[in-house]
Amino acid sequence: MSDPLGWLLDPYTFEFMRLALAALAITSVVSAVVGAFVVHKGLAFLGDALAHATLAGVAIAFVNGLSISLGALVAASVTALGVGWTQRRARVSADTAIGILFVAMFSLGVLVLSRRTSYTPNLLSFVFGDILGVSRGDVVAAALLSAAVLLFVVALYRELVFASYDPATATASGLPTTALQYALLLLIAVAVVVSLRVIGIILVNAMIVIPAATASVLAQRLPAIMALGALLALVASVVGLQLSYYFELATSPTIVLVACALFAGALGVRALRERAHIEGAPQTT
């Protein structure tokens, strides 16, 4: 590592690494923005459930020779809307609704796949993520989906916040709170699908939850949490990508572990800050 800049840039002489980085950058931004809502609405379990539920869509699309990403998108969306509907109609708690629907979809996926005798790497890449298999088309699709998510959040940010922290009063004020809550579930579904190809079903939720949680330790307001979360996710992605390139490690678990390390670091920073605050009394903020 005599040449740090070279160490940093060398991997990107390969196109697959440049595509991987682009895909991770897109994933970082969309995951952090959606993740801020997920973490503070207590929906961390939902992200995981949607990711697992995509297996049904992935399996059905794979068996029928359709677009696997599209299958994942449909499965995640159906599950997200199903969670909202079950919660409303069956009057069960959110985590129960999520718990039921996600095992139903996951079981369906396993069932469809069990009819096929052979797994293929293409399918496994969705389960574990395949950062090096990301194509130009994947990046474009991810960019378009992410742009749609960001545009929606920008357009209805204040409404989404009101419906999130006080849904009853938001409804009484004439806001379409139910529609906004369904929309939020769909945004989470899209964010999951955007990251799916890169990170894989098993770990995709980590990208939604961990950077947003880390940012929440350090920042107070939602826009700051979103921006900082995106930055932290990007840092974790680049560091993880570098480490996996040089040490030949599986990429997505490396990225996730780096993100976890950042979270631990943030807790440490906060502890230090609080100690400094106490010792520095009687100063106020």
Partner: peptide, 30 residues
């Protein structure tokens, strides 16, 4: 309408000013 305080999710990261402003909110995208 002012609900009882227990109806509000106070853990959600909004500032005091954000909360008051949301009283002004109508459905107005962008």
């Amino acid at each position: 309408y002012m609900p009882q305080v227990e109806e509000v999710e106070w853990a959600f990261p909004v500032s005091v000013l954000d909360v008051v402003l949301s009283g002004r909110r109508r459905l107005l995208p962008f």
